[in-house]
Design a protein around this nucleic acid. Sequence first.
DNA 1: CAGTGGTCTAGACCACGGT
DNA 2: CCGTGGTCTAGACCACTGT
Lengths: 236, 236
Amino acid sequence: MRSESSRTSTSWQAIRDTVLQRIRRHDWPQGSLIPNEAELAEEFGCARSTVNRALRELAATGILERRRKAGTRVAATPARRATFEIPIIEKEVESRGSRYGYVLITRDIRPAPPHIRAQMGLPHATDLLHLQSLHLADGAPYIHEDRWVDPQAAPGILEVDLGAISANKWLVQNIAYTDGSLTLSAERASDAVARCLQCAPDDPVFTMHRHTWTNEKTITIVTQTYRPHHRMRIDL
Amino acid sequence: MRSESSRTSTSWQAIRDTVLQRIRRHDWPQGSLIPNEAELAEEFGCARSTVNRALRELAATGILERRRKAGTRVAATPARRATFEIPIIEKEVESRGSRYGYVLITRDIRPAPPHIRAQMGLPHATDLLHLQSLHLADGAPYIHEDRWVDPQAAPGILEVDLGAISANKWLVQNIAYTDGSLTLSAERASDAVARCLQCAPDDPVFTMHRHTWTNEKTITIVTQTYRPHHRMRIDL
DNA sequence: CAGTGGTCTAGACCACGGT
DNA sequence: CCGTGGTCTAGACCACTGT
C-alpha cells in the first residue's frame, strides 16, 4: 500500500504523516521528547532539511513544540491552531450562490466620538469619515457595516464615490496596512441595525469588529453585523 | 541602516519583507505577475530556495498566489488568512488571570436524538453519552457545554470519572482525531443555559459548535456557550 | 560549553499546467 | 513542449539555550 505521491526518496509530507501517526498512536506520548532531526533523517533515509520541513509544519499547527537545544516535544494539547479565512463579503455571498449587492446608507465627516478616539488613540477629536452601509445577498440585507476611517491615514478616500465602490474594497486596493485585529462577539441588534437588517430589535446577531492600522496609525475601525442566524464556519 | 538580523547573505525574512513592501507600495500592483524565483534569487544574490521560502510564506497568508508555469501573482485581495488559536478553555481562563474550575452537571446515556443522529450520520438511534457541564472562571460560570460522545469512537470514555477530568481534556489526551469543524454563531440563551450561566434567558450569547471525527466516524459533537459579552479576539 | 534547531547554498530532478 | 514552482540533497555555519 502507500503508493503515494513522491518519487524522490522520502517526501516531507510522508514524514509529517508518519510523525503524526506516531503521536496519535501514543508511540510518542504528549509532552515527550522525540528524536532529533539528525536521528530522524537517518531513520527515514533522507536529508535533515527534509525532516526539518516536516517538523516545522507540525510545529506551525501547534502539534509539536520546538526549541533549540531543548529539542522537539509533542505538545501537551495537540492541534491548537487552524487557518482562519478572513471573509471577503463579496466572495462569501457569491460562493453561497447569491448575488452580491452593496448600498451606502450614510456618509458624513464628523469629529471622532470618545469611544472611537480611545480605540484609535487619538489625542484630539479629529474629523473622521463615518460610513454606514449594507451588504446584500440577492437583494436582501446580509451585513450591516458601521465604519470610521481616518482620512489622514487613508489619503484619497474623501474623493472616492463610496456609493459605487465599497469602502472595504477601495481600502484594500489602495491603502496598505501592516497590522490588524479582529474580534468576534454576539450582540443584541440595536434599533438602527435591526431596521437595516429587517430583524427584531433584540435579535442576537453575530458581530465582527475589525481594526486595521499601519505603522501605529489607525486606518479604519469597522463593526460588521451579520443578519440573524449567521454561522461562521472554520475548517480544521 | 538595516543592521538587521542576518549574517548569512540574505535571509528569507528579509526577502519576504522586501516583497511585502513592494506590494504595499504598489511597485507590484494587485493581480500582477512578479519575477520568477530564479530572477529574484539573482536580484537578491541568494539561492533560489531562499526566495522560495519567502514567497511560500507569503502565499500561505494569501498575499501571493502561485501556480507552476503560471508564475507568482500578487493576490487580488491581500492578507486573507490568519492563524486561529482554538481556545483551550483552561488555558484561556488562566491567561486572563482567573482560576479555572469545572463542574459536571449531568451525565447520561441515551439514544441519539434526531438532530444529533443527522449530524453524526448515524443510521440508527445508537446510545450516546450525553454530558452537560460548566467551565468556571474564579468560581463564576464561564462556559456552558453540551456534549454528545459516541462511546464506540471513544472507547474507554464510559469508565472515566468525568466529574474529575473534563471530557474535553480526556478526549484530547486519549482519542486521536483526524478532522474537525468549528462553527461560530450568536444565539439566544435557552432557559436551561441561562440558568447555568446566570444570565437573562434571551441574552445574546457567543456560541462555538465543534464536531470532531476520525476516519469518517464522529467522536464528539459539542456546543459551548460563552457567558454574555464574551469576545473572541484574533490577531492578524 | 555543547547540543539542537534554524537557515543558507548550489545543484538537481520532477510535476504541473499554460501554450 | 517547456517554463515555473515544488522539493530533495549534502554540507555548512549560525543562534539559541540548557547544563
